[in-house]
Design a protein around this nucleic acid. Structure first.
Ligand SMILES: [Zn+2]
Ligand SMILES: [Zn+2]
Ligand SMILES: [Zn+2]
Ligand SMILES: [Zn+2]
Lengths: 152, 152
DNA sequence: ATTTGAATTGTTATAACATAACGAGACGTG
DNA sequence: CACGTCTCGTTATGTTATAACAATTCAAAT
């Protein structure tokens, strides 16, 4: 697979800049690390990457940055993997809904109006006031299914 | 809230019995513990309850039993809480889909044909072969919303 | 009955994930 | 400068989960 990842990251970085002064160098660095792939990363993986920059960060440093980025909608947490993935469309606020490929590891956000409607209707029927969603559909993506491995 | 919890548990216990010889006393006991409430329980909570029976169980004991029960469809894991909840309709195999109330803690399974269809359509559109689902909608249930606390 | 092998459970240790608590520095405001 | 707030560093600990191996059980097969 070849895609212009720099272009792919651009909206997120731009959205991050537009937040204002709160995007500190540390937070920006953590965002870059998570943004570098389309694969969910563990907090300790982020920590290890950060450590290669020279400092000796401790877990709270990373968790605090990730909490901030989540609150800003720049990063989503993948509960089924204890991992974090960058949002590639942060300009529009949305819930966390993902397809996850267990073969190549890629996470792609679900954007589906019919699903939105079905979820809203189900919640309404149950009388639930929705606050958070964890929607993670795991399987094998089309590319992995057809090639017995991640797409080239 | 008053409901006949014994009757409520019956289908699960019956389904468990019908598995055959594989439901050992330990597994059955763990199922009973999880089945005792409609609230997700942590593995270490199960462990502590089990310990009150007299033995000195270690974590693997509980995790193995929970893995077995999950594989049999008798228990679901709630990824967003690192917890486990009994399935109250194990006779029909299904994915893990829940409404979770953050106020009273109750977990209730979503049964909604329109949602089923929307999920299937979204996966098909994305070319994903679905293997597992983590669908956890957290909010405040109708009872908690109306009473500023769990229903009586 | 004895052997044998698979499944289950016990036990010890450790890995992986996450947060509490406190202090030091940065930074703008009055 | 004095103040409060926010950010980040640091130490320690809490919480969740698994690896690895030993002991036990139990039911076939000989
Ligand atoms: Zn997103
Ligand atoms: Zn894939
Ligand atoms: Zn169920
Ligand atoms: Zn409630």
């Amino acid at each position: 697979m070849s895609h212009d990842h720099a272009a792919c990251m651009a909206p997120s970085l731009k959205a991050a800049e537009n937040l204002g002064a709160k995007l500190t160098p540390l937070r920006r660095r953590v965002l870059e690390i998570v943004l570098a792939g389309h694969t969910p990363m563990g907090a300790y993986d982020v920590l290890a990457t950060l450590a290669r920059d020279g400092g000796k960060p401790a877990p709270p440093t990373v968790y605090r940055a990730l909490d901030f980025l989540q609150a800003q909608g720049l990063v989503h947490r993948i509960d089924s993997r204890n991992a974090f993935v960058a949002c590639f469309a942060p300009e529009r606020s949305h819930q966390s809904r993902f397809f996850l490929c267990r073969a190549c590891g890629r996470a792609s956000e679900i954007e589906d109006a019919a699903l939105d409607a079905a979820l809203a209707a189900a919640a309404k029927r149950a009388g639930l006031t929705v606050e958070r969603e964890t929607i993670e559909i795991t399987g094998v993506c089309a590319e992995c299914a057809s090639s017995h491995g991640p797409a080239a």
